[in-house]
Every structure is written in C-alpha cells, then in structure tokens.
C-alpha cells in the first residue's frame, strides 16, 4: 500500500506543486520502489502464465528472465528519452 500512496502523492504533486520547484522534485523522486514492485509482480506472473501454458517450469523461468531483461532495456531506453 505504501507504493500506492507514493503513486497518489506523485500524481497530486504533478497536478498541484509548482513544476520544477524544490518541493516538486523531492515529491516525485523515489519512483524506484514503485517500479521494482510492479516489475516483480509482472515477472512472477509471467512465470506462472508460461508454466501453465507450457508445463515446463525451468523453461518458463528462463523465458521470463529474458522477458525481464528486454523489459529493463525498453525502460532504460524510455528513461533516456
């Protein structure tokens, strides 16, 4: 739930705090934990989904690991934009 509080605080800061001000910068920073939580949830779900479809847990973990690496690359590219 702390991650949801952070998401709401960031949403409200983006709409209400002066953009570029010190308070705004402080409030919107610290997204790492929110992204980490969402990535872990998504990663575990892809393993379960793949395992359910293929029936091979080891292969499902390998493929999900590769998906995670691709996702991280996409996010790094989006972040650099």
């Amino acid at each position: 739930m702390a991650q949801v509080v952070k998401i709401i605080n960031v949403y409200e800061a983006n709409h209400e705090l002066k953009q570029g001000s010190a308070g705004w910068i402080k409030t919107i920073s610290g997204w790492t934990l929110v992204v980490f939580w969402l990535l872990i949830t998504w990663f575990l779900a892809t393993i379960i989904g793949d395992w359910a479809a293929s029936g091979d847990l080891e292969q499902a973990i390998d493929r999900s690991w590769m998906r995670l690496q691709i996702m991280l690359e996409i996010m790094a590219a989006l972040g650099s934009d």
């Binding site: 969402l38 949830t41 575990l44 779900a45 892809t46 393993i47 479809a53 493929r63 998906r67």
Partner: peptide, 14 residues
C-alpha cells in the same frame, strides 16, 4: 499487473 504478466507468459511472447 498480474493479469498482464499471466497473459504475456501464457502466450509465450518474449
């Protein structure tokens, strides 16, 4: 997030 992950994994898309 879990629904997206489950579907993603089940379809086998990398």
């Amino acid at each position: 997030t879990m629904a997206i992950g489950l579907l993603w994994g089940a379809t086998g898309v990398l």
